[in-house]
Design a protein around this nucleic acid. Structure first.
Length: 783
DNA sequence: GCGAGTACTTAGCAACTGGATA
DNA sequence: TATCCAGTTGCTAAGTACTCGC
């Protein structure tokens, strides 16, 4: 094939006066990384490195950071924690406030500086109570139930995200409680006395002993390194612990299992009491006052320490995620708002009054050195307005998509390599819903998106078939064999051309930033991710247009789910097939078969009562010959097994009850008698199969039997639908697209147009989150 | 122009819960 | 009524995208 038009590529250069010109570049087809003295940043690393990655700054995890503070709980240790320049707590003010008293960290008794949930900040100052005693009027104003932010055109506009913000801070996890003295880790067959800090870390691992994580060698190695470090810092244990293989966590695991079991076996009242207490403790943190209105806070609990569970082949999986202290936390709230008291003996790292952001608290975690935020709940006005804006931006793309597509098709042949890459990437993002694909560091899992696709992720098979095979977000495999536009195929071949080899970037002249800058030219707010939202919602709309307005509610829900599934597949939202999937499916299939058999029995009973019925309605009885005798016998056999188990369980339960009532338990003869009765019934069924005669029981009439058949038929159809849905959904996760990509107004339209209660389509949480859509959409709305 | 830092959305998994079923 | 299991929710990891300062 001639590729002359493809090879006529040029690179771009900027002249001294900043004007971009296209120049024929002798080496323009070389990957940028190989162009000596290249004009552009070298994106790939040394040749032969299979994973070219951005050189990130060295992330140094504190050797004796906050952990030391856990270990000894001394002020000195605490200073170690705070002595890092990064930490907000490193401010002189915070350092000064450090205290020596620190046996552990107690979430403060929730006594806000003043009553939080009042309309006017000043008015509430005199009631430092955790309870609420609002008057009906106050209640109205506080709850903000009647405030519909989506009807307020000014809401969410401008750089300031809020005007007034009051909250009670965050809840800290309880301090570590050492295990009973008889629960130990064993090393080389002997029990070890671990100091509490090390015991805590060992416990993290022990609790996960039966999970896949604990069987992962990287996880084990990272855990063990950090465990040894904590052990050394906390004074050691008098033993030379140096081999993970010699550590035995089984006793600790058994202890945790026992606790779990005990918790499970608590009485209803005990469980309720625990829950009530927890609710009461959390109550002050659940809500905040935003612009004078009560709103829910999302993650008000600080993440507890534990072992980092990285997804996929994460190099840091298993590392110790350290305990977060008040000194690590920055609060954000209104300048006039009272500052919630930190836990006794502690101080906050910093307090900010930044109206341009929506987080209430923030800290830096030690694994990736990333920031963690406490934010408002999904049903808050702030989240709602940004959600609505997101969908509106995607909707706006409708007006531009034709031009954008026409442009990128034209640009696929652009003589400038960078433009050709922009066009090709846009095509892939638009058509296959790929993510943008930013660069990643060596200390992260090796996953990619569009711009970070490498040579080995794309296989070309002429004339225009492409196989994509790579790990995307969350290390979820993206595998697709697809036909692409001929020019896209040609371009991909150029992008893979020699000397490129496995490990090299396919798109070596662009990154998400360059791509997004290009997209902004078409529309304000347009970025790569908008295509996913647009295509997901557009697909849903198109699918909905194909659904006929007929059938039962259950059938319509199924159609909705099928449309939802199309979107989920487009977005590659997968889930691991549950371990019990095949068993569950088998059980449902058995249930359906049994119901079918029962149905046939009822029909035979009808004929026993009124043999003439078969002539009156031969169609009704036609299915009597559908089920072979062998199949019936198999069903009866399975039924027998199930019943035997039930009889045995019932027998055990009855005896348990009798024991409580101080009655003599039934003896084994009783069980035998019950099983014999079952055997008789089974024999009767088997005889029915041979004779094709079923004797009606008791006072059954033809009408009653027809009613029974009808009931079974509807149960069979409902169960079959359930089975189909289950099988279709086994590997596809519908939730993510429903939560993030499908404009909720489409679901509301479906609910109204097809008369399906919204409760069947949105869970309570989703109804809360999408209240704006539910309240503002009529059935004629279109995406 | 670039990298680092920051703020936000998107994501799957696991724990929990409550309704269906026997 | 107890048990089971599917649906739901919470948690937190992992993305994207924008801003800022050099």
């Amino acid at each position: 094939m001639s590729i002359s038009e493809d090879t006529a590529l040029v690179d771009i250069q900027k002249t001294a006066n900043g004007v971009t010109v296209a120049v024929k570049d002798e080496v323009e087809e070389l990957p940028l990384a190989l162009i000596e003295n290249g004009k552009k940043r070298k994106k790939t690393t040394d040749q032969g490195n299979p994973k070219p990655k951005k050189k990130k700054k060295d992330i140094k995890v504190e050797d004796n950071g906050s952990l030391a503070a856990i270990d000894a709980g001394t002020a000195k240790d605490n200073e170690n924690t705070l002595g890092t320049t990064d930490s907000p707590a490193a401010t002189p003010k915070a350092a000064k406030k450090k205290t020596k008293k620190e046996p552990g960290l107690q979430t403060p008794t929730p006594k806000p500086a003043r009553k939080l949930l009042s309309q006017t900040p000043a008015a509430s100052q005199e009631t430092p109570s955790r309870g609420r005693s609002a008057t009906p009027k106050e209640e109205d104003e506080e709850e903000g139930d009647d405030y519909k932010w989506w009807e307020d055109e000014k809401f969410g506009q401008g750089p300031e995200r809020w005007q007034l913000l009051e909250h009670n801070g965050v809840i800290f996890p309880p301090p570590y409680e050492p295990l009973p003295s008889y629960v130990k880790m064993y090393y080389d067959g002997k029990p070890v006395n671990l100091p509490p800090a090390a015991e805590e870390v060992a416990g993290f691992f022990a609790a996960m002993l039966e999970t896949d994580h604990a069987k992962n060698p990287v996880f084990q190695k990272n855990f063990f390194t950090d465990f040894c470090e904590v052990l050394a810092q906390s004074g050691g244990c008098g033993r030379n612990i140096k081999s993970f293989e010699k550590c035995d966590f089984s006793k600790m695991y058994a202890h945790f299992e026992k606790l779990r079991e005990e918790k499970k076996n608590l009485s209803k009242a005990e469980k309720k009491a625990i829950k009530d207490e927890k609710d009461a403790q959390e109550e002050p943190y659940r809500t905040c006052l935003l612009n004078g209105r009560k709103e829910n806070v999302g993650n008000f609990r600080v993440e507890p320490p534990g072992l980092f569970r990285g997804r996929g082949a994460h190099p840091k999986t298993g590392k110790l995620k350290k305990r977060v202290y008040p000194e690590d936390i920055t609060l954000n709230l209104g300048a006039d708002a009272p500052i919630p008291p930190p836990p006794e003996g502690h101080s906050w790292g910093a307090v900010k009054h930044d109206k341009s952001v929506v987080w209430l608290a923030m800290w830096k975690e030690n694994i990736a050195d990333a920031l963690k935020y406490v934010k408002l709940a999904a049903n808050s006005s702030i989240k709602g307005v940004s959600d609505m804006k997101k969908f509106e931006t995607a909707r706006k793309l409708k007006d531009h998509i034709k031009d954008i597509r026409a442009d990128y098709h034209k640009m696929l042949k652009d003589p400038i390599m960078q433009n050709r890459q922009i066009a090709t990437a846009t095509y892939l993002i638009d058509i296959f819903a790929l993510r943008a694909g930013g660069e990643k560091g060596d200390d992260e899992a090796d996953t990619v998106g569009c711009c970070s696709l490498r040579y080995e992720h794309v296989t070309l098979s002429p004339p225009q078939t492409v196989v994509f095979d790579f790990l995307g977000k969350d290390s979820i495999r993206f595998y697709q064999e697809v036909e692409v536009d001929r020019q896209v195929f040609k371009n991909l071949r150029i992008f893979k051309k020699d000397p490129k080899k496995p490990g090299d970037d396919l798109f070596d002249r662009i990154n998400p930033s360059i791509l997004n800058k290009h997209l902004q030219n078409y529309m304000k707010g347009l970025s790569a991710k908008v295509f996913r939202t647009y295509n997901a919602s557009k697909t849903m709309q198109d699918q909905m247009d194909l659904i006929p307005n007929e059938g039962t509610v259950a059938e319509r829900v199924l159609k909705y789910n099928a449309a939802n599934r199309t979107v989920a597949i487009l977005c590659n939202h997968q889930r691991t097939v549950s371990k019990t999937h095949s068993v569950t499916v088998g059980k449902i299939q058995d249930r359906i078969k049994e119901m079918e058999w029962q149905k046939l029995r009822f029909k035979r009973m009808i004929l026993r009562l009124e043999p003439k019925e078969i002539k009156k309605d031969p169609k009704y009885f036609a299915e009597l010959s559908d089920m072979p005798k062998e199949e019936m016998l198999m069903i009866i056999h399975a039924h027998k097994e199930k019943q035997q188990q039930l009889v045995a369980r019932k027998f055990a339960n009855d005896n348990e009850k009798r024991k409580l009532e101080n009655l003599e338990p039934f003896d084994e003869d009783e069980l035998k008698t019950r099983l014999e009765t079952l055997d008789e019934t089974i024999s009767m069924y088997e005889k029915e199969v041979q004779t094709e005669i079923v004797e009606p029981t008791r006072a059954l009439t033809v009408e009653k039997l027809r009613g029974q058949v009808e009931k079974l038929e509807s149960r069979i159809s409902a169960t079959s639908l359930q089975l189909k849905d289950k099988e279709d959904n086994s590997e596809v996760s519908l939730g993510t697209s429903k939560l993030n990509y499908i404009d909720p107004r489409l679901t509301v339209v479906f609910s109204k147009k097809f008369n399906v209660p919204i409760e069947r389509l949105f869970t309570k949480t989703l109804r809360d989150k999408f209240n704006w859509a539910i309240e503002s959409t009529d059935e004629n709305w279109r995406f």
